[in-house]
């Protein structure tokens, strides 16, 4: 990643008008260099004020910086410039979800679903919003802030039937995750997600990808422990440029994974991991659903 950033910086220095600033800004964002990413994005926007992707980049950086209002405004601008921009709808839905404005979030996500009915991340996000709406006892969307009125029959059409019938696997860790900048996943022995969600700050559900990639680390840990005579492993914590990921083994070779922002103290990450292990253990004991 550092090499990519260097290469992109050099390309931008050679040609400041080049659209390469989009890749550079995104690379800096992904590595957590948010101030630099913001500078690059703002300079790019000065040169390309009507480019939807510039505003989209700025919105994603703003989300990472915790500036949700600014992110919403930027995505709103994207929507005006490029009415069929899927990411803008997803992003706006995500911001509204984070703000607890579930009815409006559902409206934007439903629009996103209309734009791309195959996008699984939108279907998952919609399912999560509906869980929240059900919990809050909310009725059909009625506020004027959303882009359009959504009727209950529309929302039923877009939901994943599995999510609609049994949302427990999606919200297994909701109580633990409430108000925290972390998320939890329960993976089976093959790395497939059994419970929990992993939604990035720009609204993408990457649970399967993250689960599949990281579950292999636990195999390596198990193998190492067999030879090092340190007993059974109880947790593995990996600090990265973008996050802290903590894992713990579960019965039947399942794996519990907690991902938190870098701002979260490590000790607290482990406390959350312990609570999620307890919760997932109880869930597995009663048959996983």
């Amino acid at each position: 990643m550092a090499d990519d950033i260097r290469r992109l910086s050099e390309a931008l220095a050679r040609d400041p008008a080049s659209p390469v600033y989009l890749q550079l800004g995104e690379a800096l964002r992904k590595t957590g260099q948010l101030d630099l990413a913001l500078k690059v994005a703002v300079r790019g926007l000065e040169r390309h004020p009507h480019d939807a992707d510039s505003h989209d980049l700025l919105a994603r950086i703003a989300v990472d910086r915790g500036e949700l209002e600014r992110a919403f405004d930027e995505w709103d601008m994207v929507r005006r410039i490029a009415p069929a921009h899927l990411g803008a709808r997803k992003g706006m839905g995500y911001v509204l979800f984070k703000q607890g404005r579930y009815v409006e979030a559902q409206a934007y996500l439903s629009e996103a679903h209309e734009l791309d009915g195959e996008d699984e991340t939108v279907a998952t996000a919609l399912a999560m919003v509906r869980v929240k709406l059900r919990e809050a006892g909310a009725q059909a969307p009625q506020g004027p802030q959303g882009p359009r009125q959504v009727h209950p029959e529309d929302t039923e059409d877009t939901a994943d039937p599995a999510d609609r019938d049994d949302p427990e696997h999606l919200r297994l860790f909701d109580q633990i995750n409430e108000g925290g900048e972390h998320t939890a996943l329960l993976l089976d022995a093959t790395g497939l997600v059994m419970a929990g969600t992993y939604v990035t700050q720009d609204g993408r559900d990457v649970a399967q990808e993250v689960g599949a990639e990281l579950s292999g680390v636990s195999d390596e840990a198990r193998r190492a422990m067999r030879h090092l005579e340190l007993g059974d492993w109880s947790s593995l914590t990996v600090e990265t440029d973008a996050a802290v990921v903590a894992m713990a083994p579960m019965r039947d070779d399942a794996l519990l994974l907690v991902a938190a922002t870098k701002a979260m103290p490590l000790g607290l990450v482990h406390r959350v991991l312990d609570r999620c292990v307890e919760r997932a253990g109880a869930w597995l004991t009663k048959g996983g659903g």
Binding site: V210, L230, E239
Partner: peptide, 30 residues
């Protein structure tokens, strides 16, 4: 090998480079 696997996996999962890794076991830590 463990560190390398963690580094490659974290990168593939879009989490960036690994800065620190800790493996806790019943009788010690790596």
């Amino acid at each position: 090998s463990l560190y390398r696997k963690a580094r490659l996996s974290a990168d593939a999962a879009g989490l960036g480079g690994v800065t620190f890794l800790r493996l806790r076991a019943t009788e010690g830590h790596v």
